[in-house]
Amino acid sequence: MKANSSTQQKKTGADTIQRLMAFGALIILFVVFSLASPYFFTLSNVIGILVSTAVNGLLAIGVTFIIISGGIDLSVGTVMTLSAVMAAVTVRNWGMPNIFGVLAAVLTGTFAGAVNGLMVSKLKLPPFIATLGMLNVARGLSLVITDLSPIYFPLETGWNRIAMGSVLGTIIPGFDIPNGVLIMFGSALVAGLILSKTVIGRYAFAIGSNEEAARLSGLNIVLWKTAIYAVGGLFVGIGGVIIAARLNSAQPALGLGYELDAIAAAVIGGVSLSGGEGNILGTIIGAFIISTLTNGLRILSVPQEWQIVVTGLIILSAVYLDILRKKASAN
């Protein structure tokens, strides 16, 4: 017991270091870019960064649950798209109020997550394969349902304001942080609580650290894995709401490649791809590092091809740091 609690402590210690490092890296990025360009640290540009983080942040939250449980989810990008499409169908085609559109998106995400979970736990498909299949199913369904062209939300529904309106701006004039950003932070808070304070969170860590031990200690793996994937899917569904609101449309061809940004954010934030480790704060910081980097390089007019190279280097360094950290905590 004692040994266990001391490794636990070491782990938390290492986690804190990683979190501080990730946060430190974000601060450094801000400082470097602010010094390099007068256009970087302006209210409008910082809001731009926040907005472009919202969707990836939500997808990254979703994928964090799944990676912590020892799995992977490649379907988050296209499930997000399918959720957006279902919201658009509900609001535009069926003429229902926005709240039902939000529900449709969240349910779609949750359902797709639960199916992923069942395929992984019950049918024993490797997570990589199961979610790769889901990636294609969701992508195909989005195209089928929309008949290949975007569905636009009628302006009078005010759907756009879900993400791009600013409740905060009406309370504190001039402080126009778009709702989508607040929704991401709110979701992160909830996700953090689920992960650290609820049984789903605890079991995610238990299954991710040692699935066999968790099973032997009487955990219903099928049930809990399904639940973990479903919770992940729920946040992906919220991501669908945000992207549909930002673009005021469901774009059926979008979403491919977004899963990689989400996984990268989680990994930069210290989520271990071997499972059992990670936290939401780190993931959100990871998402901010990616979008800040992209935005900053853009503001500095670095050619697009080099932006991609730099993003890749940052991911590699983050993962290598993760390995070093683990070595350190093992010693």
């Binding site: 540009n45 731009g48 673009l247 449309s249 061809a253 491919l256 992209t294 935005n295 007019s301 697009q304």
Partner: peptide
């Protein structure tokens, strides 16, 4: 600059936003 595929509407919006901020 431009998005990697014509489907990436939101990435193009990010580019346009950054361009305006400059």
């Amino acid at each position: 600059e431009g998005p990697e595929s014509e489907a990436m509407v939101d990435k193009q919006m990010d580019m346009l936003q950054a361009a305006i901020d400059k």
